[in-house]
């Protein structure tokens, strides 16, 4: 008898809960989410090298100018065209997202590295809005413009056996940036980095790098060196 009462109570509670849930009108998930604007991405010519930053479509987060954040898309950054491309599964199409709508994006690549990109206005030879990867954030940000250029090379036969003389070549450019002073380029080697500081600091910075056993031979060395220099309070000259 007691068991019967128990199960009746349980049944009534479950019924009450179900009634409360069904009283609220159901909605599709993300019905009010950002509708992404863009144009169809046309395939790039097949040359040696790689026009994208990542081999695969990576899940990540896109922040739009409207404040909306979309984190349910697979996309990849085209270093060749400086565009963000996503794959719309519903219509089976690769779409280049309008740059005017995007504030920034981030993703974790195949190697587990976290990449944060922000859109900046570059007021120099490549005047316009570009996506820069933020390597280090602080009083001055260390940015990299991950550009892949199409260069002319000695003729070769591509995968289809077609004779061609073009190749995708990464030509990354590094910059220090502050919103007030803008951009200043920096070469990813010791001399390039040290030259971005006042003469009186340069000797001390070299000493600091020696002391910390930091050699700048690649991007990670540059980031490590800059973090050590920034920690000591040295200021970049723009």
């Amino acid at each position: 008898m007691i068991n019967k009462i128990f199960y009746t109570i349980l049944f009534l509670l479950a019924f009450s809960l179900a009634a409360r849930l069904s009283a609220q009108e159901n909605m599709n998930r993300n019905w009010d989410s950002e509708k992404i604007k863009g144009t169809r991405q046309l395939p790039y010519p097949l040359y040696h090298g790689f026009p994208y930053l990542t081999k695969n479509w990576m899940p990540g987060e896109i922040e739009f100018n409207s404040g909306e954040i979309v984190d349910s898309l697979n996309f990849r950054y085209s270093s060749y065209k400086d565009e963000l491309v996503y794959f719309n599964q519903a219509i089976n199409t690769q779409i280049t997202i309008d740059k005017s709508d995007i504030k920034g994006f981030s993703f974790v690549d195949e190697n587990g590295s976290h990449h944060i990109f922000r859109k900046f206005f570059y007021n120099d030879f490549m005047k316009g809005y570009h996506y820069f990867e933020v390597l280090s954030e602080g009083e001055s940000d260390l940015l990299v413009y991950r550009k892949v250029n199409l260069n002319t090379v000695s003729p070769y036969k591509d995968e289809r056996g077609v004779l061609t003389n073009m190749e995708y070549v990464p030509e990354y450019r590094y910059y220090f940036y502050t919103p007030e002073k803008g951009f200043t380029g920096v070469k990813p080697n010791q001399m390039g980095l040290v030259s971005k500081f006042v003469k009186t600091d340069q000797k001390l910075i070299r000493k600091l790098l020696r002391k910390n056993k930091i050699s700048i031979t690649d991007e990670s060395g540059l980031v490590k060196a800059w973090k050590a220099i920034e920690k000591e309070g040295y200021k970049v000259v723009f």
């Binding site: 509708k35 992404i36 604007k37 863009g38 144009t39 169809r40 719309n88 219509i91 199409t93």
Partner: peptide, 10 residues
């Protein structure tokens, strides 16, 4: 003069 997309609309 391009193929535009808005969400899933072409």
């Amino acid at each position: 003069q391009s193929e535009r997309y808005y969400g899933d609309l072409r």
